[in-house]
């Protein structure tokens, strides 16, 4: 029972991390119509900036905003210099240009920080693990990640449902041309939105830094999974990104945790383990294929 609880928490935690990445991507994708392959690079930039500042100052409280800021600035610069010129273009042009950006950012990071992965410490106040409800022992840091992720989700919901900016975003997602025709400075809105998306990616990178390996190429590892989340949830939909992220996080975690045991009932140990590893790797993609065949617009489409 406690094992199941722990695995469920793990699923939620993976889910909220994916949500932070997917939220930015789905906004950029759904509202500006840009396929941004370099979204993973922003995640990497957040993690690296955080690691660098933490190493220099030794302060997590300084490093945390530094990571967000770096990702945000990189995002705004990326929008201003490159992505802005791609709005009117074919998706294919966007793919090639943002692929070029990935190569650039990865190599630039290698030149600046070297090839060795960086070290990031967990801040003291988040160290260790706690008992939850007397049944599950769970690392404090992961609980903090869940909390930050949920808080961000609520914050985004409020931003989009309650504020003027949110209204414009919703309007933009439904009818881009109309918003422009109404005299809204759509360029500024887009730059701002891109910056927010970049900061969310940076936030995911900052939080992942202490538990994963901060290294070149870390962005591409999560990029495809993020796209999967966006498409499962429905493009342009924050709610969809949240549902999709949790679904992906749960499916992935549960398959990894329980499939070997199930298969071992049916066949010899090592074969079962190897097969289970293969099948659980496919799990997320099977989920996406099924969702797309049954509900092509995703689980919670933005409009219509």
């Amino acid at each position: 029972m406690s094992l199941l609880m722990e695995q469920a928490l793990n699923g939620v935690q993976l889910g909220v991390t994916l949500f932070l990445l997917a939220a930015g991507l789905t906004l950029i994708f759904g509202i500006m119509g840009v396929i941004n392959l370099a979204h993973g690079s922003l995640y990497m930039i957040g993690a690296y900036a955080m690691a660098a500042v933490a190493a220099k100052t030794g302060s997590f409280l300084l490093a945390f905003p530094a990571g967000l800021l770096a990702a945000g600035i990189a995002g705004v610069a990326m929008e201003y210099l490159v992505v802005r010129r791609l709005y009117a273009r074919d998706h294919l042009d966007q793919v090639l240009a943002t692929f070029g950006l990935i190569l650039f950012f990865n190599q630039l990071t290698t030149i600046l920080f070297g090839r060795q992965p960086l070290f990031v410490e967990i801040p003291d106040f988040l160290e260790g693990s706690v008992m939850i409800g007397g049944i599950v022992r769970y690392p404090v840091y992961r609980l903090a990640m869940i909390a930050v992720g949920l808080a961000t989700a609520i914050g985004l919901y409020v931003l989009i449902a309650r504020t003027r900016l949110g209204m414009l975003i919703r309007a933009g997602a439904t009818n881009r041309e109309m918003v422009r025709a109404l005299g809204v400075d759509i360029r500024l809105l887009y730059t701002l939105l891109f910056g927010v998306g970049a900061m969310l990616a940076g936030l995911a990178g900052v939080m992942a830094g202490p538990i994963l390996s901060v290294q070149v190429g870390m962005g591409e590892q999560v990029l495809i999974l993020t796209f999967v989340v966006v498409v499962i949830g429905g493009i342009g939909s924050i709610r969809g990104a949240f549902i999709g992220a949790l679904a992906v996080g749960m499916v992935d975690t549960m398959l990894r945790a329980y499939l070997p045991g199930v298969l071992r009932q049916l066949m010899a140990g090592p074969d079962a383990d190897a097969l289970a590893a293969g099948l659980s790797a496919m799990g997320v993609y099977m989920l996406m294929a099924i969702v797309l065949l049954v509900k092509p617009q995703g689980l919670a489409p933005a409009h219509g």
Partner: peptide, 21 residues
Amino acid sequence: GEIYTRLDQTDFAAEMAQIRA
């Protein structure tokens, strides 16, 4: 116990729980 992880895996929380169990 033998556990096979994935080459592109970054999160090992599920495996940690299995080890503990």
